[in-house]
Design a protein around this nucleic acid. Structure first.
Lengths: 343, 343
DNA sequence: TTGTAGGCGTTATCAA
DNA sequence: TTGATAACGCCTACAA
């Protein structure tokens, strides 16, 4: 039919060349009509190409496209643990946004291990992704090796987006931990609470520090007093332990327990229940509004984080050409049964 | 220093060529030592290449590699909703396995929408991924269009892995819903329960049907009796509604409520609590062992699914050359407070 | 064992 | 506007 003989894709998958031949146009023309180009092509050429592509079931080879363009339509997302619903919700927002702009999201798990994170970035870099989203909660300072790796990525034209400040060469999206916790402290003080103990992750974990600080500001600024600060890990058992210890230390009736994360608060609830102390006696509040807070008994007062929105913002930061730092989303206090009114 | 002048990577990112020049060897040699090849190269050549690569911070361009090889070191994972911890845990297993073999995982969300799923597969196909993992719970039969899309992928040399049977040209990994539910029914009957009502998702959702069937077999085979079957959605509110209705229909003391999923059971628990009925009166059991079951009060009896292992198996099925169907992992019954002994 | 050269599927430059 | 043709970065027969 044409000069070239192959009519059916020889190797299984039709290529742009197959389409061009089938449509009787040049490779360049086929490329222009099928894959976004600024240049216009006459309808008399455009139509047959479209027809041929549809008939052959053509799909652009993204790898080839990426090699030719020098960058792939890929966003690499790094989280600490995708089994954790916190990161799951975040990832959902990222993927939704990526879908809107025709990007593909790869996902990698750092396990909160800096060395691992570096290795992953190095591997990922090989894909020449359009953007790199760092959402693994980082403890402490940036490693020099990490910085070098990021610098290399950025020098290659990739965009770096970080959840939380402190990453060089990056656009940053923030969660207003401090503000949310402050409002929580304020609200609870206004409910009549005057004494509190607070539970955080290890010292130096930023989100924990911010939440503890914010809570303290809000609570104390309104007449409350923080009587003890415990540090552990961000997990349920740790919350349990810390409160068990607090009980041993002697916990006055009417005290409020604030956990810097919902899992901490849930652990606290369990410890209190086991010790036979009710919410009328010792109240509990958490942070994050993970789904468990709704189903636990008593249901948990907490601060909601619109994680999916945050994920979406992270993605926009990665793809928008003229992006500018938005104000972090407002975090709402969610009052439930675990903090009954005291006055 | 060499014939070619460029010593520093001109465009930002060093290429294999840069490494070869720096090391004073041919492109082919550099390729062989850096990127896996069966051929051996003398140490006197290997060393300088390694040094040069390290010095330049070389990373293979995965896209170029993929175009050259015709297939990318990528596994495309499709789930219904990554914000759902169920899929989150599954994804964690997939990613862990992928990491072991140096593969990258892309993640896409079907929202349980078949049309969307087809579109996604079509897009993904362009990446020439090594494998495609279909883990979005499918309701009903396979669409012909989907089948065509999968066939095209498979014809191009890609491997298809599905969670649950019914997908053509695919390797299948199964969750033993029926067996797990059967054991649960059996166990509860042996605890003294004799009457039950069961809560499922919509008729036709396979996992729900299997769990309901299995439970019924186990429970009735052991002297129990299923008195009513309710169908709704796989979510908490639906569980709440169905039980609220059941209460209206009249729920005898001593009855057991089995929800085909933990979220259903948690909703059931809430409805019972609101109606002032305790676990001593009406017991509840779920399926899946999602984390909420541990923290809810009373804690929830359920069947554990090792979802991360399942994810890992899915990945192995995608990458192992001589894979063979393994027996599905054993699901353990997890007895907790929501089903106190009746005898 | 090493190097040369052609090919992978696209894009982009530059004449026509 | 269209169409050759040279990149893009890498792999791999094939020849040395």
């Amino acid at each position: 039919m044409q000069t070239k003989s192959n009519d059916l894709p020889p190797s299984g998958i039709p290529t742009l060349m197959d389409v061009a031949v089938e449509a009787g146009v040049s490779l360049a023309t086929a490329s222009r009509v099928l894959n976004g180009s600024t240049r216009r092509v006459a309808d008399s050429f455009r139509a047959p190409v479209l027809v041929a592509a549809a008939k052959l079931g053509y799909t652009a080879n993204l790898s080839a496209q990426a090699t030719a363009r020098g960058t792939a339509m890929v966003i690499a997302l790094l989280v600490a643990d995708i089994a954790d619903p916190y990161f799951g919700r975040l990832a959902a927002g990222v993927v939704r946004g990526a879908d809107e702009v025709g990007m593909i999201v790869t996902i990698s798990i750092t396990e909160a291990d800096p060395a691992r994170e570096i290795r992953l970035i190095r591997e990922l870099r090989g894909m020449r992704p359009h953007g790199l989203i760092l959402a693994a909660s980082r403890k402490g300072e940036m490693d020099a090796a990490l910085e070098a790796e990021l610098e290399a990525f950025s020098r290659g034209g990739g965009r770096i987006v970080a959840l939380g400040p402190g990453v060089k060469d990056s656009r940053t999206v923030t969660i207003d931990n401090c503000g949310g916790a402050l409002r929580l402290g304020h609200t609870l003080a206004s409910l009549g609470y005057r004494r509190a103990i607070v539970l955080g992750a290890a010292k130096g974990v930023r989100s924990s520090d911010e939440r503890l600080d914010g809570f303290t500001k809000g609570f104390c600024g309104d007449g409350g007093q923080v009587e003890a600060v415990y540090h552990g890990e961000y997990d349920r058992d740790s919350g349990y332990q810390m409160v068990a210890e607090a009980i041993k230390d002697g916990l006055e009736a009417g005290t409020l327990v604030f956990g810097a994360s919902d899992v901490l608060a849930v652990g606290a609830l369990a410890a209190l229940r086991e010790a036979g102390r009710s919410v009328e006696d010792i109240a509990v509040a958490g942070f994050g509004d993970s789904s468990v807070g709704r189903d636990v008994v008593p249901s948990l007062t907490t601060v909601g984080i619109p994680l999916e929105d945050v994920g979406y913002q992270l993605l926009r930061a990665a793809v928008d050409d003229q992006w500018q730092c938005e104000v972090p989303p407002h975090l709402d206090v969610v009052l439930r049964e675990s903090t009954p009114r005291r006055i």
